[in-house]
């Protein structure tokens, strides 16, 4: 554990609404550098909303609170600026983009990030070598690279493609939104491997999941339970086991304001 390290992400009293409805109702969360935090909670509790707000989705209106990322005001940045600063969101529902070649897209993304870091553009050869490595890591079918982004990919292929992109872009803060949903057990292990390969003292992750089993492979430092737009309980990795056994009902009951 690296709890003593400096804070990479600090969320304070974050409130957000979408379509006129308040979804996040005051989130406080600090993610230290090198830490992995799991976020669990019932359907509709606001997990994806939180992930979307962090990545900069414009439909979500932030009504109060602040988010500081490596000392900067995250909410003031465009989505692309956040990405270039090392934030990565693996989508719960990756978007299909017909007509945009997967390899072309990923090279453009990588070069945008590299340019921002002051690194030279990667050339075609270097890129091919890099993606060959990362595809091997994630046991990905090469053919997916020459297809349009996520277009006609199976559910599992889409999720794997998200983690593949993450492996190529090497973010500092990865937010994985239910990357485990729809994966069979072998795929789950492979994806977890991909995530673990990136674990390091200077990278952090927020892993949104409904299932304990992912956390057997990606062992979190902290587990939080989100319910009705608030974090109602935080604990160590054992909290996930307790949730697996008891469900969320007892927490929601406890969390009811008096």
């Amino acid at each position: 554990m690296n709890g003593a390290n400096h804070t990479m992400l600090e969320i304070k009293n974050l409130r957000a609404r979408v379509g006129g409805k308040d979804i996040l109702k005051g989130i406080d969360l600090a993610v230290g550098t090198g830490e992995v935090h799991a976020v669990m909670g019932p359907n509709g509790s606001g997990k994806s909303t939180l992930a979307g707000v962090l990545a900069g989705r414009s439909e979500y209106e932030v009504t109060a609170g602040s988010v500081t990322y490596n000392g900067r005001d995250l909410l003031g940045l465009d989505p692309e600026a956040r990405a270039r600063e090392g934030l990565f969101l693996a989508f719960q529902y990756p978007v299909e983009i017909p007509g945009v070649n997967n390899a072309y897209f990923l090279k453009a993304a990588l070069n945008a990030v590299r340019k921002h870091r002051g690194d030279p553009e990667i050339d075609a050869m270097g890129f091919m070598a890099l993606i060959r490595d990362k595809m091997a890591l994630l046991d990905m079918d090469q053919a997916l690279m020459s297809r349009p982004v996520n277009d006609g990919f199976s559910g599992g292929e889409k999720k794997r493609n998200e983690i593949f992109q993450m492996a190529v872009l090497e973010p500092k803060l990865a937010i994985l939104d239910e990357t485990d949903s729809g994966l069979d057990i072998d795929a789950l292990k492979i994806v977890a491997n991909g995530v673990n390969a990136l674990r390091s003292p200077n990278r952090s992750a927020i892993v949104v999941t409904h299932y304990q089993r992912l956390l057997d492979y990606i062992v979190p430092d902290f587990v939080h339970v989100l319910s009705d737009g608030r974090i109602v309980r935080s604990g160590g990795k054992d909290l996930a086991l307790e949730l697996e056994a008891r469900g969320y009902g007892w927490l929601e009951a406890e969390a009811q304001p008096a």
């Binding site: 900069g56 414009s58 692309e80 983009i97 897209f105 453009a108 990030v113 992109q165």
Partner: peptide, 26 residues
Amino acid sequence: SQDALFYLRTRGIGLDDARSLLVRAF
């Protein structure tokens, strides 16, 4: 597609490039 634009931007591709990419794809 706003969803596609957002997706591209979350990967570091700037708004203008993302729009151009989607139009060319069309």
